[in-house]
Design a protein around this nucleic acid. Sequence first.
DNA 1: CTGTTAGCGCTTTCAC
DNA 2: GTGAAAGCGCTAACAG
Lengths: 333, 333
Amino acid sequence: MVSPDLRQRVAKAVAEIGYRPNLNARALASIRTNVVGVLVPSLTQHIFTDVLRGIYDGLQPTKLRVLLGNTHYDDAEEERLVGEFLGQKPSAMIVSGIEQRPATRKMLEQFDQPVIQIMDLTDDPIDRIVGFSHFQAGYLATRHLIEQGYRHIGFGAGWVNQRSSGRMKGWRRALEEAGIFNPDLAAVSIVQSTRPEDVPVAPTNKHLGESTSALNGRKYLCDLLEREPRLDAMFCNNDILALGVLFEAHARGIAVPEGLGIVGFNDTEVVSASHPSLTSVRTPRYEIGLRAVQEIIKVLEGRDGGERVMDLGVQVMVRASTMKLETLAGQEM
Amino acid sequence: MVSPDLRQRVAKAVAEIGYRPNLNARALASIRTNVVGVLVPSLTQHIFTDVLRGIYDGLQPTKLRVLLGNTHYDDAEEERLVGEFLGQKPSAMIVSGIEQRPATRKMLEQFDQPVIQIMDLTDDPIDRIVGFSHFQAGYLATRHLIEQGYRHIGFGAGWVNQRSSGRMKGWRRALEEAGIFNPDLAAVSIVQSTRPEDVPVAPTNKHLGESTSALNGRKYLCDLLEREPRLDAMFCNNDILALGVLFEAHARGIAVPEGLGIVGFNDTEVVSASHPSLTSVRTPRYEIGLRAVQEIIKVLEGRDGGERVMDLGVQVMVRASTMKLETLAGQEM
DNA sequence: CTGTTAGCGCTTTCAC
DNA sequence: GTGAAAGCGCTAACAG
């Protein structure tokens, strides 16, 4: 406690001199760093930037900062970055997915602060995990198409990694249960998975192309129609792909949803405004980021909930592009 | 120099113990931090994530890491973050735009390491700036529409800040030069600018709405057509807005480009795949991020180029949505 | 309760 | 050349 006058004068001096506390020294002296290390596989896909928004918003009221790393979907890079970040003694770590290398996992397990995996689900998280089931997402999307009366349902994905292969397996399972699975109806450009058996289609269905583009969507529809002219619906690995399929349908004069049902993935903003609007699987990206940091804050404050696996779920947002059965009158925006 | 054997044994011990150098201590002892502070106003707009990609890619071969902050387009938050980041003694700073508060600018000027402003241009940068002219972008887009024969050219923007108002002024200037400027043809939802006089339209043209959405694009086209039925073209503040305009044109049966010319902004991937494909102004977002860190690396290595203002330019990518004059045969993809 | 001092784990410098 | 010692700017634990 000092006099307000002195307080004022000190503050003034501080401002004049331009004094800034050295946070490195502070971090070294105390053990707290107030830094959360965040590792994402990509900044290209808006999906991870939505997660980041949630993280930043959740961290806003705290004094925690973000140290962000981009692994570029590369195991080795992830391992390097985890090592580097851990050397910074962060207050917590957030990493994407569940496919860490054994060495990476070990480092993270030895780390004595909260570690949150995000964007996927497993019974055996490093510490805690908050995400949703990709299998369930693919399954629900495909079931929706089946219920709408579609029978020749394709799948399109620019590239297949561990998470999208989960969606793909959901697609396959739903079709197998209905007895209408056809492995020819998968259009996949690039497969990257540590376990190739994860991808439930024959390699003959693959062809090269860029990763995740609307142009690919157009191409996939062409390809699948060539293989199976009766194709009447598509579940797309992302919304941009779905938009591409829609554009190609427009260009070919195929009516959507009557002649072709389309389901996107992620439910990004653009799909609700297209004409016709697109059905899409809503993924809780923002919520995942927010929840991850909320859990971190809880643990750091000592009021740990103890929940290790947090499934935030997905939801099929039904719009005009799959309204085959219903009358469309008044349904479109 | 030690024997390979000993080297091996030490490495083994290091791995077993799980030793990690404490980077805070290192930062404190040396003055080098190997951290680049990056401040962006938003992570929602993919535009800044493209910049980030450039930054990360440019930093890849170095040992520099990124400390990322999100100002949410808030001056006060920017000031807070600059102070906080500077306390970390980063090796360099990257900040977005040129509208820093005086106090923020002063802190950055006193900082003795490279400071790069990005995404805009000014003759008077804090240290260096790499970007492009938003005025030129708006001017070129509008000139292109005029040259294609359009005469009632509207402008649409979810929200107008310092940079988009530059585009808007370019739009206005081009129309004034052609003697066809009509202030009624601006559809703008939210204006946020320190200098309201920057926005070259009457306030009556504003109405509320979400920031940057395809649904807004649809609404803007409706609004402008109501105000001026002869409207025959639109320059949109971003590609998603342009997509919304295209969807609304579809829905209303307006032919694009014959009845309505559309130009987007940023040239994101999706516009080249739409049907018809959309003309858009390509902005060098990735290149800006890359160049910014290349400049930083140059300065840190002591081989400073001395260039303070780096204009990376923009380019109108002409596609089907503005091909009014030419024959369209064979032009569309 | 205030003022002092001993480190935090490195890098750098200075003797040897 | 190698090895010991002196800080970097703070925080925390101590004594007054």
